[in-house]
């Protein structure tokens, strides 16, 4: 497609409608090939706000971040957990390969304190990742966090209730999580690039639990059938990897 001058073409904030934006700083690989393929920069964005909106608590919102967090911690970066809803459990974090000495938990009594702490952590450039669970957050505050994230160039993830799906947000990446036929369906609500109409499916069950009682058979079928539906519908050829 001729016409776009080179400097416009290379600007990280400008992208063609049909492709993914080129990110100025490469993303942190999520560890799930299917997800990485659909994210600009090939992974979780750095220096920008990401929102994760799980349909229900506990369906796998932390597990999808696990490999990225493990990678950051192994590079010696601190990961701040701001106002988590429960206690992050060290044995599971260690088992996921996240170095415990790089974890900082920040408990807050008020929402204002959580936002303040998140902003401090983002701006300080001392953290590799900031995970925050704000209870009530409005657009101007989100915007402020987005600016802070741009300053700090770290992985910034907000966990928000599924009710926030329809609210406007300055986050560059918004992912809604839902369960679907035994797997975890990631719908990308917003990204820098062409919108993605179909969800990305990841197996949701931790391996040990999967081995014991549920057979992986039906899950695989579910994925296959969805994939075939997607290709039959004539959308972009889908790539599914069961990582």
């Amino acid at each position: 497609m001729p016409g776009l001058p080179l400097e416009l073409d290379q600007h990280p904030g400008i992208w063609r409608g049909g492709e993914l934006a080129r990110s100025a700083c490469p993303g942190i690989a999520s560890g799930f090939a299917a997800l990485d393929a659909e994210l600009p920069g090939g992974g979780w964005p750095c220096g920008a706000l990401t929102e994760i909106l799980p349909q229900h608590e506990g369906i796998g919102e932390l597990r999808i971040l696990g490999p990225a967090l493990a990678r950051l911690a192994s590079r010696g970066k601190f990961i701040a957990w701001i106002a988590p809803p429960y206690l992050p459990y060290a044995p599971a974090l260690a088992a996921a390969g996240i170095a415990l000495e790089r974890i900082v938990i920040v408990k807050t009594a008020r929402d204002g304190d959580s936002l303040w702490a998140a902003e401090q952590a983002l701006r300080s450039a001392a953290c590799g990742g900031v995970l925050a669970w704000p209870r009530d957050i409005r657009y101007p505050q989100l915007r402020r966090l987005q600016l802070a994230a741009e300053d700090g160039r770290c992985l910034a993830v907000l966990f928000r209730p599924t009710g926030a799906v329809h609210e406007p947000s300055p986050a560059v990446l918004r992912i809604a999580l839902a369960t679907s036929a035994g797997g975890l369906a990631l719908s990308i609500l917003k990204r820098r690039g062409a919108p993605l109409s179909r969800p990305i499916l990841l197996p949701a069950v931790p391996p040990a639990a999967a081995n014991s009682n549920t057979s992986p058979g039906p899950d695989l079928h579910a994925v296959d059938s969805l994939a075939s539906v997607a290709t039959a519908a004539g959308s972009v050829p889908a790539r599914f990897a069961l990582a």
């Binding site: 060290a90 415990l100 938990i105 300080s124």
Partner: peptide, 24 residues
């Protein structure tokens, strides 16, 4: 190197016990 600064700042507002690491 400036992560101690961040922790000090957070602690000065939230209290020393509110900011901690995890151990097995």
């Amino acid at each position: 190197g400036n992560w101690p600064r961040l922790i000090e700042r957070l602690r000065s507002r939230l209290g020393a016990a509110a900011v901690h690491g995890l151990a097995l």
